[in-house]
């Protein structure tokens, strides 16, 4: 199965958003979104504040189900299963799709327990298995060498950048199919940001990444595909180089050249 963009770019789809509308109560936040997320690539969602990019991201792990009054219309297909269907338990979706939040939010527990938690909720308590998985995830998040001697220390004693990498390890430990990143570097300094970006580029060989970012440079630097959103609509989706070199939409051009947003 392969998807073809208008100018002949071909990729393998991982998830497909079809005619998605989303409502916060009576306010429509997403309008008829259609988007194909390429497998094992980084797809960036960009657009001015309030355009719905975070709202769209949070549809992918049914985060909106936590609050009353939210409503989805349409589909997000993950391997032909509509993960928005009411009969699909949000827990099932969240076990397949992990998320890293804007502000690092480690649990006030030890580093080890933070990473192991995703396995613990599944009922996995075998120490030898947890040890291996935790190490693997921390290595995957480029944090192992910094914390291997203090796995039982409180996670809150880590620096901001380390906390965010811990949150990435926590998201990776369960071998997710997709990892959602919601502006993961907006609370970090430039050096920590660089290390997180490098990490995300390394991850895309293993996992599909969908990232919301406010930073145009960030999207240009390491994403493969970019989707531009404006006022709840998806205006343009293309290979990142193409979009930044010759945007087909006037709005996109204004935004990425800094005239709006």
């Amino acid at each position: 199965m392969a998807e073809e963009l208008s100018d002949g770019v071909i990729f393998k789809p991982k998830a497909e958003v079809k005619n998605l509308n989303f409502y916060y109560g009576s306010v429509q936040a997403l309008k008829n979104i259609n988007l194909t997320v390429p497998e094992k690539q980084v797809t960036a969602l960009i657009g001015p504040s309030g355009c719905g990019k975070t709202t769209l991201l949070r549809c992918f792990n049914r985060m909106h189900d936590l609050y009353p009054g939210n409503r989805y219309e349409g589909q997000i297909l993950l391997e032909r299963i509509n993960i928005l269907a009411p009969k699909v338990d949000p827990i099932e979706v969240r076990m397949r799709i992990s998320m890293v939040f804007q502000k690092p939010n480690p649990f006030p527990k030890s580093i080890y327990e933070n990473v192991a938690y995703g396995l613990r909720v599944r009922g996995e308590n075998k120490r030898s298995l947890l040890d291996g998985k935790v190490e693997e995830a921390l290595r995957g998040a480029a944090l192992w060498n910094e914390v291997k001697d203090r796995l039982n220390d409180l996670a809150l004693n880590l620096s901001g950048g380390q906390q965010q990498r811990l949150c990435i390890a926590r998201a990776l430990v369960v071998d997710p199919e997709i990892v959602l990143f919601d502006e993961p570097t907006s609370a970090l300094d430039p050096i920590a940001t660089a290390s997180i970006e490098e990490l995300m580029s390394d991850l895309k060989d293993k996992v599909t990444i969908l990232i919301v970012t406010h930073s145009m440079q960030q999207a240009a630097r390491f994403s493969d595909y970019t989707a531009f959103m404006y006022l709840g609509e998806l205006l343009e989706f293309n290979k990142t180089e193409t979009m930044f070199a010759k945007p087909s939409h006037k709005m996109t051009e204004d935004y990425i050249s800094g005239r709006t947003g």
């Binding site: 969240r94 992990s98 939010n105 006030p108 909720v121 926590r170 998201a171």
Partner: peptide
């Protein structure tokens, strides 16, 4: 208890009771 900790637990696939028992109550 800040909401972002609740969301962090849910995002890992915790059920409501697991979220309460593992996080909200201890904290």
């Amino acid at each position: 208890i800040p909401n972002n900790l609740r969301e962090a637990a849910y995002a890992l696939g915790a059920s409501k009771w697991q979220m309460i028992w593992d996080h909200i109550l201890p904290y």
